[in-house]
Each structure stands twice: as structure tokens, then as C-alpha cells.
Amino acid sequence: MRAILVVNPKATTTTGRGRDVLVRALRSEVDLTVAYTRRRGHAVALAREAARQDVDLVVTLGGDGTVNEVVNGLMTAGPSNSAADDRPPAEELPALAAVPGGSTNVFARALGLPREWPEAASMILEALRVGRVRTIGLGLADDRYFTFCAGLGMDAAVIHRVERARHRGRVSTPSLYLRSIVSQFLIGAERRHPAIRLEQPGEITEGELATVIIQNTAPWTYVGDREVNPNPDASFDLGLDVLALRRLRVPSTTRMVTQSLSRRPDPRGRQILRLHDLEEFTLVAEQPQAFQLDGDYLGERNKVRFTSVAAALRVIC
């Protein structure tokens, strides 16, 4: 089996020594090439080339951003590099194995992999030995794929705040996210002027939404070891799930967060809109809104079309 290990050298929770251990372990099972990312977007090119060279397996060592780039490289390895073209079946693409190396690692943990990379790598090696593989669905936002979540509005604005803090040298911690949430909640325009509507083919338009969370699986994210589950029924095996807040008021927003953190999450309320297992919908905003995919801030958008892509990718877990 031919494989490539795509390493983000800036990954939060691994060291050079740890990478060497992982490389030796993988080479005991596969014919391995190692590639290091040098800039944002580089993993897309590395994965795309791996698919074109008929590599059997792409392993990532990094966070959710690295995984997202690799997935987009694999899914757009056709001649035009376009997600809108006919996609090959999952069996014709390299499989993916995600070794957690970032600060949160939602995708890997949602697949059932341990939080720490040595234990996760051991589980992946076992799966390779016994041929354990799973085929999952993905989300598509316009022409970019995502694995576990997307957002338009407040959650994306919070991610933007956290990314700016990290660029200033801050460490990504739950307390940093909490402070960013409070700051955005207090000053964000989305609280005062809900400006997003959700349109579905053949359905009534839902308007005046303040922020929208989209999930391709559950949980949405983690706070340490605690799952955050706005849409607990979301699944890699189904369509996309949506939770939207009509107003960002302190009581209703606090209640939604508390419900999402509970052991039996089921967020409900007059200010909450929840939709399950959607194949297609579009978000349209009167003013540009912050936009994120898989925890990466991607700027502001007025309109995003979301599509569920079933049985899109094979993963080793």
C-alpha cells in the first residue's frame, strides 16, 4: 500500500520526536512518503497530487484545518480541480487517516479516535492491519468541502477573533474562546440586526436569523473533553443539520449553550430553528456575514449554497 503522510509542522500537540515515531510506525505497515506543509493551502495541492498519482492512503498529522485542506485536495483531483464537476466514487479516491495533532481535533474525535495522537495512531495502525474502513458523507459549501461543521454569523466571527489572537501569539484554549464569545456577543451587529435567511427548494423561507450553525456530524465541537451538541442527531451517514438563532438574547442564547453542553442535548426554544438531514439549502444575508468551515475563518459572505454529498470519502478509523 502506497501512502503519504501530510504533516503540518506547526501542529499544536506534536513534536519532532513524535513525528519521527509516527513515521517509523507507519513505515512498518505501508510504503510511506512524508510531505510537510509550507503555507496555508499547501495540503490541498499535496493531496490532489497524491490522488492523481494513485496513492492508496493519505494520512494527516495536524488539526482540523489540515484535514479540511487534504479532503478538498482529494475531492477536487479531477482535471479541472472543480468541486462542481462529476466526482469519482469514494472507492476510486485515496482513503484518509487523520492523526490528531491540533488543539481540538473535532473530525478525528467524531470518528471515534482518541484525543491524544499516540493512541489515535495506534488505532489507525490496527485498522490498517485488519482492513477496517468507513465511508462517510461530506458537506459542500459553494465549491469547498467540509467534514464536520460550517457557520455563518456569530460562530464564524468568534473563530475570526480567536485566529487574530493566535496570530498575536496567544495559545488556543477554552478560556480564549469563551472571552471571544463574550466580546462578540456584546458588540456584534448580528445581535441587533438579524440579517440571514434560509432558503430550501420547495419550502417556506426562514428569515431574520441572527446566526446559523451547520453540522455534518455530532458533536459540533469540544470544550476540553466535553462535547458541544447543538444538533445531536447530525451524522456522517445523513444529510446536513442546522441550528439557527433568531435573536441573540442573553436568556435564550445562554439556554441554548447550556442545552448543547448537557449530557442529553436537545436545544429547543422560541428563538431556535433546528432542521435535520437536509440535502440542499442556501443562506442569504442582507449584509456580509462572517463565514467558517471546519473551524477556519474564510472571510465574509452574502450568500452560500450548502449541499450534502453522501458516501463521499473512505476513512481509516
Rank of each mutant, 00 (worst) to 15 (best):
residue 56 D to P: 11
residue 60 T to R: 00
residue 50 A to I: 01
residue 75 M to S: 09
residue 80 S to I: 00
residue 103 S to F: 09
residue 151 G to A: 11
residue 43 A to Q: 04
residue 42 H to N: 10
residue 147 T to L: 14
residue 87 R to L: 15
residue 100 P to T: 10
residue 157 A to S: 12
residue 100 P to I: 10
residue 91 E to I: 00
residue 98 A to H: 13
residue 162 V to A: 05
residue 114 P to R: 13
residue 90 A to P: 03
residue 145 Y to R: 06
residue 88 P to I: 02
residue 164 R to T: 06
residue 68 N to A: 12
residue 65 G to S: 05
residue 54 D to I: 00
residue 112 G to E: 05
residue 35 A to S: 13
residue 129 R to C: 06
residue 150 A to L: 10
residue 51 A to D: 08
residue 121 A to S: 15
residue 136 I to K: 13
residue 150 A to Q: 07
residue 45 A to F: 00
residue 68 N to R: 04
residue 152 L to N: 03
residue 137 G to D: 11
residue 147 T to Q: 12
residue 118 P to I: 08
residue 48 R to F: 01
residue 64 D to C: 07
residue 45 A to Y: 03
residue 144 R to Q: 15
residue 86 D to W: 07
residue 122 S to L: 13
residue 79 P to F: 02
residue 152 L to G: 02
residue 147 T to M: 14
residue 82 S to F: 08
residue 50 A to G: 01
residue 70 V to R: 00
residue 159 I to L: 10
residue 136 I to H: 12
residue 112 G to A: 06
residue 58 V to Q: 06
residue 37 T to Q: 00
residue 156 A to T: 13
residue 55 V to E: 01
residue 52 R to S: 07
residue 53 Q to W: 01
residue 161 R to A: 13
residue 48 R to M: 07
residue 138 L to R: 08
residue 163 E to A: 14
residue 97 A to C: 11
residue 47 A to E: 01
residue 75 M to P: 11
residue 165 A to Y: 05
residue 93 L to Y: 06
residue 103 S to A: 15
residue 73 G to L: 14
residue 57 L to A: 03
residue 143 D to A: 11
residue 44 V to Y: 15
residue 79 P to A: 15
residue 41 G to L: 04
residue 73 G to V: 14
residue 150 A to V: 10
residue 121 A to V: 07
residue 163 E to R: 02
residue 38 R to F: 00
